Amino acid sequence: MGINVDTTASLSRRQAHWEKSSSIRSRPRRVLRNVSPDEHFYPIARQPIALHPLVKALGTAARQRILLQSLYKFLNDIAFVETRVVSEVSLAIANDQLPWPFPAQLRADVLTVVIDEAFHAHVAIDFMEQVQRLTGVTPLSLPTTLTVEQAIRNALPKLPADLHIALKTISVCIAENSVTKDLIDVHREDGLNETFHAVNGDHMIDEVRHCLIFGDVLRHLWGVLTLAQRRAIGAVLPDFLGDYLSLSLQKQFDIDILADVGLDARQIETVIAATHLDQDLATYRTVNPIVDKVVNFLAESGVLDDPEIRKAFEDRRLVDS
């Protein structure tokens, strides 16, 4: 599939934009110098266990410890997703190793993502170490995988081997677009430590550009797949989204955090029951806009154009009939 003149011009402008504004080219190292008692390291709105009455009764120090451990998981997740999932697929595209050819300029843009993501992982690890030195608080045992990795592992056996890399590529396109939403949400909260706010802001600026790049990747890939290949992938995407948007890893980590701040087993069960509701993806859609954001991204990329694929999403109540 060729690439038209207008798109080529757009991609060239994107390269120029990367040269000017990417974090690795335009931002200094973010150095954590002090922590104000009024600041916290992670958005309270994104960690509901910190707002539960049983946790509030433990006092401010316990809340701050919960938010600090939540920061460690957030940074660890960034380092994992950037150096493992995203980089694996991005390098395959950049090196023209997929069964489907990609335009040269788009491959060049994806290579800038590889550079950015390695830097994001470096910044996340660097900031985590700075926080540990300053606070004296070490991370709990952090998850060794990610929900996107779990979702990929669950989906691959449902597809023929020749479509595994296509599924992985689509997974990264989805992840890059949903990660950006997470970063924007984090950035909106007041009271965050200013150095973390700067680190997150740098990352967010890069990820907005990555959203556009991976939107192009998905549209191009979907356009060169056969109808049979699209339908095979489309049939597994609802289950993939259910696994990807699952909070199972977060739930276990929250259990560990609550034990760390001194709650007993019965209290932990009470807090988890109130903050981690058992619900299917369609129900989760009613309380978290990330579901609609991901589905809309797929729709805008042409994934739901085929009636058979759209019906699979309708059957799971991920789109309206």
Rank of each mutant, 00 (worst) to 15 (best):
P99N: 12
R316C: 08
T270L: 10
D185S: 15
R153S: 13
S12T: 14
G302F: 01
A232S: 12
A45I: 03
S12P: 07
F240I: 01
I290C: 08
L318M: 02
Q105T: 12
G59C: 07
L247W: 07
V303Y: 01
A57E: 11
Q250F: 14
K73I: 05
E88R: 04
I272K: 00
L32V: 10
G191Q: 07
D185A: 15
R84Y: 12
L68P: 12
M204N: 08
R133N: 06
S248F: 14
Q250P: 08
H40N: 12
E300N: 15
R219W: 03
I170V: 14
L51C: 13
Q267I: 05
G262R: 09
V224Y: 00
V114I: 08
D256S: 14
F313C: 07
F119L: 05
L245K: 01
A273V: 10
L51R: 15
N177P: 06
I170P: 05
R231N: 11
P157C: 00
I49D: 06
A299G: 15
N177A: 02
H220Q: 03
A259Y: 07
V217C: 03
S36E: 08
T145G: 11
N154D: 11
G59V: 06
L54D: 05
C211D: 09
V208C: 08
K311H: 11
K181D: 08
F80V: 03
V55S: 11
V186G: 02
L98D: 03
Q250G: 13
L241E: 02
A94K: 00
D243E: 12
D243N: 13
E149N: 15
Q130W: 04
V287G: 07
E314L: 04
Y72N: 01
E39Q: 10
E269P: 05
V5M: 11
